[in-house]
Amino acid sequence: MNTSSPPTVLVVTLGGTIAMTSAPEGGVRPALGAHDLLAAVPQLGDVVAQVKTLEFRSVPGASLSIDDMNELADTLGAMDAEGTLDGVVVTQGTDTLEETAYLLSLLYGGTAPVVVTGAMRHPEMAGADGPANLLAAVALAASPQARGLGVLVVFSDQIFDAARVRKTHSTSTTAFTAPGTGPLGTVIEGRVRLLAVPAHRPPPLTAPMRIPARVGLYVASLGDDGVMLRAMAEHADGLVIAAFGAGHVPAAWVPLLEDTARRIPVVLASRAGSGTTLTRTYGFPGSEKDLLGRGLIGAGHLDPLKARLLLTTLLRTGTHRAGIRRAFAPLGTTAEGRG
């Protein structure tokens, strides 16, 4: 970090709604580059920062992959180690933003903050929100307050922890929230106002993700007899169960989940949207206490989508079963994580 000159902020573009324009065949698709996005925000001149750009991908958010984000994390990590940047802004599609931001937080260990943002309204719509989100993201990335906080998300001038942020509306410009915790702070009049910091920043994974791993995510629903669950479990290297409530499934699933947990890691999360899985309150067949006793791993306050990403990265780096349990323990899921 160079303290004698304005901070250097790298704006990385991945595509998404924020970069979309009309296509000849109808609708919109990613087409705008980094310089186009910056040109739409003349107020960036008021932010004390030197802004550089990197056009990394140009795809809808739904088409981003785990390997894309792994490559991006490696690129940013190398630049951070060289001391060539003070902050990073990543613009992308919102469909997967809550997942990619968390995945970056697992893979990137630099001190320069990474701020992920996007837009719910494309540039040709009235009230397009991309320019305002980009302005707030650059202000946050350039702020000394964000240094060392890892990966953050900015939307509608609100700052979120990558591990807590959720997309909770399909079209609203206030689609991003953090159920159960709320935002960490705001960007007001170009100034960062942090009210809290992330409670738990996971240590970055140092081993390369070279091992193929397919991790399934199965959602519990009323009347499901488990036949489709069995089919998924047979083809998975790891499995996340988005269970009812605090970690409950139909009693009929119990033998299958116990057998599966002997073969592959099975993580128990809640489909509720906020809150945590429990460890020892309910004791009926299919309860959290029963399932954890049969070898499942609790996700605690980590939602099913993010639990799948954590398990995937652990498997792809060759982490053994005990290491997987240790990685989930700080989330408040096991005997090691309680307290």
Rank of each mutant, 00 (worst) to 15 (best):
61 G>A: 12
133 N>W: 03
139 A>Q: 14
63 S>C: 05
91 T>Y: 06
66 I>T: 15
125 M>F: 11
109 G>P: 09
130 G>H: 11
74 D>V: 06
148 G>R: 01
73 A>I: 00
104 L>T: 03
121 R>V: 09
143 S>I: 02
53 T>K: 08
60 P>E: 09
124 E>F: 04
100 T>D: 13
69 M>F: 01
125 M>C: 09
122 H>I: 04
94 T>I: 08
75 T>C: 12
65 S>E: 03
136 A>D: 12
77 G>E: 11
151 V>L: 01
144 P>E: 02
153 V>H: 01
71 E>S: 02
83 G>K: 12
106 L>T: 06
76 L>Y: 05
58 S>Q: 15
82 E>H: 10
128 A>G: 11
112 A>C: 08
125 M>H: 10
71 E>K: 07
97 L>P: 07
56 F>T: 06
152 L>G: 02
153 V>A: 03
142 A>L: 13
135 L>F: 14
126 A>E: 14
121 R>I: 12
103 L>D: 00
79 M>F: 04
133 N>K: 11
130 G>Q: 08
77 G>C: 02
150 G>R: 04
117 T>M: 07
111 T>E: 13
66 I>A: 06
71 E>G: 05
60 P>C: 05
76 L>Q: 03
160 F>E: 05
97 L>K: 00
126 A>M: 13
102 Y>G: 01
79 M>I: 08
142 A>Y: 14
113 P>G: 04
85 L>I: 15
54 L>H: 15
55 E>Y: 06
77 G>D: 13
68 D>R: 04
61 G>Q: 09
121 R>P: 08
126 A>D: 14
61 G>W: 02
67 D>N: 12
156 S>C: 10
122 H>T: 10
89 V>R: 10
55 E>G: 14
79 M>Y: 06
58 S>V: 06
149 L>W: 00
95 D>A: 14
100 T>H: 09
82 E>N: 09
78 A>H: 13
135 L>H: 15
59 V>K: 12
61 G>H: 10
59 V>N: 05
138 V>K: 10
111 T>D: 10
138 V>S: 06
138 V>L: 07
135 L>T: 06
122 H>V: 05
148 G>N: 12
111 T>I: 12
154 V>W: 07
